[in-house]
Simulated scan of single mutants.
Amino acid sequence: MPAAPLSRPERPGRLLALFLALLAAVATTLAAPPAAAAAPTRVMLLGDSITGDNGCWRALLWQHLQATGHTDVDFVGTRQNPWCEGAFDIDNEGHGGFRATGIANADQLPGWLSGTDPDIVMMMLGTNDVWSRLQPPAILGAYTKLLGQMRARNPDVKLIVAQIPPMDPAGCGDCAQGVVALNAAIPGWAAANNTERSPVTVVDQWTGFSTATDTSDGVHPNDTTGIRKLESRWYPALVSALDGTGPGPGPDPKPGTCKVTVTTNSWNSGLTASVTVTNTGTSTVDGWSLGFTLPPGQSLTHGWNATYAPRSGAVTATHTAYNGRIAPGAGVSIGYQATHTGDPSGPTTFTLNGAACTVS
Rank of each mutant, 00 (worst) to 15 (best):
358 T>I: 11
250 G>P: 00
148 G>Q: 07
29 T>L: 15
257 T>N: 14
138 A>W: 05
333 S>T: 15
127 T>I: 09
86 G>Q: 13
67 A>E: 12
226 G>E: 05
128 N>R: 14
272 T>D: 15
320 T>I: 03
112 W>Q: 12
191 A>C: 05
304 W>Q: 14
330 A>E: 15
233 R>C: 04
127 T>C: 00
218 G>P: 00
99 R>Y: 01
246 G>Q: 14
110 P>F: 07
95 H>V: 15
211 T>F: 02
153 R>Y: 05
264 T>W: 05
10 E>P: 00
56 C>G: 06
142 A>V: 02
241 A>C: 08
179 V>I: 08
96 G>R: 03
38 A>F: 04
185 A>V: 03
108 Q>K: 13
39 A>T: 15
357 C>F: 09
170 A>P: 06
62 W>S: 10
324 G>F: 00
127 T>E: 06
343 D>H: 08
188 G>A: 15
131 W>M: 03
157 V>W: 00
313 G>W: 06
72 D>Y: 06
79 R>T: 10
133 R>N: 15
242 L>E: 00
209 F>G: 06
210 S>H: 02
188 G>E: 13
227 I>A: 01
332 V>L: 07
334 I>C: 08
187 P>D: 13
339 T>F: 10
118 P>H: 11
42 R>L: 04
93 E>G: 02
16 L>D: 10
230 L>E: 07
72 D>I: 02
300 L>V: 07
64 H>I: 09
229 K>I: 00
351 T>A: 09
107 D>I: 12
327 A>W: 00
36 A>E: 13
81 N>W: 05
122 M>W: 02
285 V>L: 11
90 I>C: 03
64 H>V: 05
98 F>S: 10
49 S>P: 01
302 H>W: 14
255 P>K: 12
178 G>Q: 14
341 T>P: 01
214 D>N: 07
202 V>Y: 00
306 A>W: 02
210 S>T: 04
47 G>F: 00
36 A>H: 10
196 E>V: 13
319 H>Q: 12
77 G>M: 12
357 C>V: 11
164 I>G: 01
161 V>L: 08
87 A>H: 13
287 G>N: 12
108 Q>D: 10
145 K>V: 03
4 A>H: 13
244 G>N: 08
196 E>W: 05
138 A>Q: 15
217 D>A: 12
329 G>A: 04
38 A>W: 04
73 V>I: 11
294 L>W: 04
73 V>N: 11
32 A>W: 11
120 I>C: 02
187 P>E: 13
79 R>L: 13
